[in-house]
Deep mutational scan, measured.
Amino acid sequence: SELMNSSKLIRMLEEDGWRLVRVTGSAHHFKHPKKPGLVTVPHPKKDLPIGTVKSIQKSAGL
């Protein structure tokens, strides 16, 4: 199965306009000026399962 580095996923979010608002432990929480909701990324993780990545991307509207 495909894995993604959390840094790469965070870069994709930031390029889309998401900004880090809070860190709780290894959970990084992002908000967007125009899009609704809060997106949480486990970080640092070298090997996020593709299912997790897809669900984060979906929440972020990517």
Rank of each mutant, 00 (worst) to 15 (best):
43 H>Q: 03
26 S>E: 15
28 H>A: 12
13 L>Y: 01
14 E>W: 10
2 E>A: 08
46 K>P: 15
16 D>V: 05
43 H>R: 03
51 G>R: 08
12 M>E: 08
62 L>A: 04
44 P>I: 04
13 L>R: 00
48 L>S: 01
9 L>I: 11
5 N>D: 15
9 L>N: 01
13 L>N: 00
26 S>D: 15
53 V>L: 06
11 R>T: 14
54 K>T: 07
3 L>K: 13
57 Q>R: 09
25 G>E: 13
60 A>G: 05
3 L>H: 12
2 E>S: 09
39 V>L: 07
4 M>V: 09
38 L>W: 12
30 F>C: 01
17 G>F: 02
36 P>N: 09
2 E>I: 07
42 P>R: 04
45 K>T: 08
32 H>A: 00
4 M>E: 06
35 K>D: 01
13 L>D: 00
37 G>Y: 04
37 G>V: 03
5 N>M: 11
8 K>W: 11
18 W>A: 00
45 K>H: 08
51 G>I: 10
55 S>N: 11
51 G>K: 12
5 N>V: 09
9 L>D: 00
43 H>G: 03
40 T>N: 06
62 L>T: 04
14 E>R: 08
60 A>C: 03
5 N>F: 06
52 T>W: 07
58 K>A: 13
41 V>E: 00
26 S>H: 11
8 K>L: 12
18 W>C: 00
33 P>D: 14
7 S>H: 14
36 P>W: 07
18 W>I: 00
45 K>C: 15
41 V>S: 00
5 N>W: 06
52 T>E: 09
29 H>P: 00
18 W>G: 00
31 K>N: 08
27 A>R: 10
1 S>I: 13
34 K>A: 12
20 L>C: 15
54 K>Y: 04
11 R>P: 02
56 I>G: 01
8 K>D: 15
26 S>V: 12
48 L>A: 02
6 S>R: 03
26 S>L: 14
60 A>T: 03
36 P>F: 07
11 R>Q: 14
24 T>Y: 08
47 D>N: 14
34 K>V: 15
43 H>Y: 05
27 A>I: 11
8 K>R: 13
8 K>E: 15
6 S>C: 03
21 V>L: 07
59 S>E: 11
16 D>M: 05
13 L>V: 05
25 G>S: 12
12 M>C: 08
22 R>T: 09
49 P>L: 05
53 V>A: 05
58 K>R: 14
38 L>I: 15
52 T>V: 14
59 S>M: 11
25 G>A: 14
6 S>L: 03
27 A>G: 08
50 I>F: 10
22 R>K: 15
19 R>V: 13
